[in-house]
Design a protein around this nucleic acid. Structure first.
Lengths: 126, 126
DNA sequence: CAGCATCCTGCGTGATACTG
DNA sequence: CAGTATCACGCAGGATGCTG
């Protein structure tokens, strides 16, 4: 069986971990749940609520996007015009993944509030 | 460094990512759902189904365990005897997290089958 | 606007050896 | 048995500058 693709583990969890490894993947999918977004919009959306002082390196976002595309969670739609316009949207697979993230967020909202450092967060989950 | 705790994000997902960052954390929690396990048992359980050729460095497992403990997902029970005996078990918070992992596994089993390389998996999830 | 090319750094992870 | 100490490496990910 050689070494397979580092996915020889019968455990779905490992594959999941690899798939969403990266700081933005989950958030990207989540942001995409409401409809297609353009590159810049994703970028902006990612910054919203982030540390603030850190811009997202294009290389990083680009890579995450590509990885997600190869994972089959999202799809890339290039309009092939100038100025460039590219939209990313969830695939069927990606959409099926949204509830999972929802569960995660749900749990996180309930149990991670105190995990920070006494942070105040008036978020309403959705 | 200062830089806050990298948790200034109001997004539960980010916190979640940090919490389960690490190759074994999710699996540890999952394995612990059936009851307390000792250090060695966790280690053995982790190897079961893994690449096989890679032993888990004690340092790594130790760190994951400590991180999980500090996250409040698991608890450490030291029997204080010789030879040493230490058991790890899920906290209430940890237990509440199990369904989330379950959701992940569930999804993974259904949608990640084809993601590998034509892997066959006769697992029944539970 | 949507990326890619290059450099650099921190940390997660593995391997090995040692201790209470 | 249950860890800690030390060394080394690869890769995620940030910063900058450039292009179609």
């Amino acid at each position: 069986m050689a070494k397979a693709k580092t996915l020889a583990c019968g455990c779905p969890v490992a594959a999941f971990q690899k798939m969403i490894s990266g700081k933005y993947k989950l958030r990207i999918v989540w942001d995409l749940k409401d409809g297609p977004l353009r590159y810049g919009e994703i970028r902006t959306g990612l910054l919203r609520g982030s540390a603030g002082s850190a811009e997202i390196a294009p290389r990083v976002l680009s890579r995450e996007l590509k990885a997600l595309t190869e994972s089959g969670l999202i799809d890339r739609k290039d309009f092939g015009v100038v100025p460039p316009k590219v939209e990313y949207h969830l695939t069927r697979k990606g959409k099926s993944f949204v509830p999972v993230i929802s569960a995660i967020r749900n749990w996180g909202t309930r149990h991670l509030a105190e995990a920070g450092s006494g942070e105040r967060l008036g978020i309403a989950a959705e």
